[in-house]
């Protein structure tokens, strides 16, 4: 049985038995290459569930829709390792209880989709640890390497070009499973720390603040980059932050649900080579 079929039947059983009230998964999209999230509550609808290498979206963020988990019942959700890490972070930040999240785990390896064993976020700790080790050794991608090789002025010009295209649609925020503040800092106008106008300065400020707020929290799922209508390589900023907290504080976001946030904790011997 393919993994798609296997998970369809699992989803069906879970719904039929009343173990979960909903399954959040993937369905066919508007074009053959696209997959879109689907929210299934009836066992007979489970045949709509799709699972293949095109299922890239991190679905964890949907669990935070106001009131969805407030009845204490469980929801099953298709999650990759990034998704499971998201659950851990959301649990660590008290946004949900991991006991309410029944995981249908999968991993995409090139064009193949593989099962990941486990039901609860805590069952995936080995896989997450392996990801951390891999991430430590991972070289920057081509564009990131190119940027690192530039001087400051060139980098500034690069980002100026990218951010000049930003239209402040906040799709990146909407798509990000970590952007769950009841009120985003940009929506606070007393004082207005981030310029709301969509000029390059305001766009730069917005994107820097977003990257800072995600430092030590971003799981690099890529939702923001895929959502950006003008194709700004947002992942570069987030990857830079993830690399920094990993190197400086040995912090890999979402290891488990008790992990303290990188920016609300400290060690007395944290590195400080840049401080005069």
């Amino acid at each position: 049985m393919s993994l798609q079929e296997h998970y369809r039947s699992q989803a069906r059983e879970l719904l039929a038995a009343g173990a979960v009230k909903m399954v959040v998964g993937y369905a066919e999209g508007t074009t053959p290459e696209r997959r879109r999230p689907v929210f299934i509550t009836e066992p007979e609808e489970c045949s709509r569930l799709v699972l293949d290498a095109r299922c890239r979206t991190n679905l964890a963020g949907y669990l935070l829709r106001e009131g969805l988990l407030s009845d204490g019942r469980e929801i099953a959700v298709y999650l990759s390792t990034e998704g499971v890490r998201t659950i851990n972070i959301l649990a660590a930040e008290s946004q949900l209880s991991s006991a309410q999240v029944r995981i249908l785990g999968f991993e995409i390896d090139r064009d193949e989709v593989k099962a990941m064993e486990g039901k609860r976020a805590a069952d995936f700790s080995e896989a997450i640890l392996a990801h951390k080790e891999r991430r430590k050794k991972q070289a920057p991608d081509e564009l990131a390497a190119k940027l690192e090789a530039m001087n400051a002025a060139e980098r500034f010009t690069f980002w100026q070009g990218e951010f000049s295209r930003c239209i402040k649609c906040y799709a990146c925020r909407q798509a990000c499973p970590m952007c769950w503040c009841r009120r985003c800092v940009v929506d606070n106008n007393q004082p207005q720390w981030v310029n709301t106008s969509s000029h390059t300065l305001g766009n730069l400020e917005w994107n820097l603040v977003r990257a800072f707020h995600l430092a030590g929290r971003c799981v690099e799922c890529g939702n923001c980059g895929r959502a950006c209508p003008v194709d700004i390589p947002l992942h570069l900023l987030n990857r830079k932050m993830t690399g920094e907290v990993l190197e400086a504080f040995d912090h890999y976001p979402g290891m488990d649900e008790h992990q303290e946030p990188a920016l609300a904790s400290f060690r007395k011997d944290d590195p400080e080579t840049f401080i005069l």
Partner: peptide, 8 residues
Amino acid sequence: SLLQFAGV
């Protein structure tokens, strides 16, 4: 690190 990456 973020500022430097952004070209400041």
